[in-house]
């Protein structure tokens, strides 16, 4: 029986002033391996200053539509102990590059309660979808300057991955035509 390993959602922070955003997922075997993998997959180019990963199976996701219809799904493996939850929210259907962004953390006795509290607390914008994740399921890259330098800074020097590196092709193609009558060397 083949395994492609579990799926982990990846949250990338582009600059210290921006929230962590869900950017996609990776397949990896364990939490630290998932974090290493996320760096390899999502920081091939700048920008990033921090990454979080969480097993897809630990995420409680609910849409506005589901809440309106009272069809809220069951959260994965409810943990009866009160604990910290991270809350992510999607606020726009309009553009492509918007999905769920981190809005904050709160203490709750269950994912459902965390969702209820989040709906009361984070009211500055309409939420089209919520993700609630137990903090204990999230693995984070270190914030030390050494780690940030080692994990995220080198991509800035890999300029050959940027189209601007090939600026020469931006000029008119005729520039490269061989003048007539010039013999080959």
């Amino acid at each position: 029986m083949d395994t492609q390993w579990p799926r982990w959602e990846v949250f990338k922070q582009d600059t210290p002033a921006k929230p962590h955003q869900a950017v996609g997922s990776v397949h990896a075997a364990d939490p630290f391996h998932a974090l290493l993998t996320a760096r390899n997959v999502f920081a091939r180019r700048p920008q990033a200053v921090s990454m979080w990963v969480a097993p897809a199976s630990a995420i409680f996701s609910v849409t506005q539509e589901e809440l309106a219809e009272g069809q809220e799904p069951k959260p994965p493996a409810p943990d009866p102990r009160p604990s910290t939850f991270y809350v992510f929210r999607k606020t726009s259907h309009k553009r492509s590059m918007t999905f769920v962004d981190y809005v904050g953390e709160l203490e709750a006795a269950s994912p459902q309660q965390a969702l209820e509290l989040a709906r009361q607390r984070f009211t500055d914008a309409e939420a089209l979808a919520w993700w609630v994740v137990p903090a204990s399921s999230v693995t984070k890259s270190e914030n030390s300057p050494e780690t940030v330098e080692s994990w995220f800074a080198p991509a800035k020097d890999k300029t050959y991955k940027q189209q601007s590196y090939y600026g020469v092709v931006g000029s008119h193609v005729s520039k490269f035509k061989r003048p007539r009558g010039e013999d080959d060397e």
Binding site: W5, V26, A28, L36, T37, N40, V41, P154, K158
Partner: peptide
């Protein structure tokens, strides 16, 4: 052995 590790090793090779 898996897509993600292909990407990882290609990083190492480039570096």
């Amino acid at each position: 052995p898996i897509l993600e590790e292909d990407i990882a090793l290609a990083n190492i090779a480039q570096d």
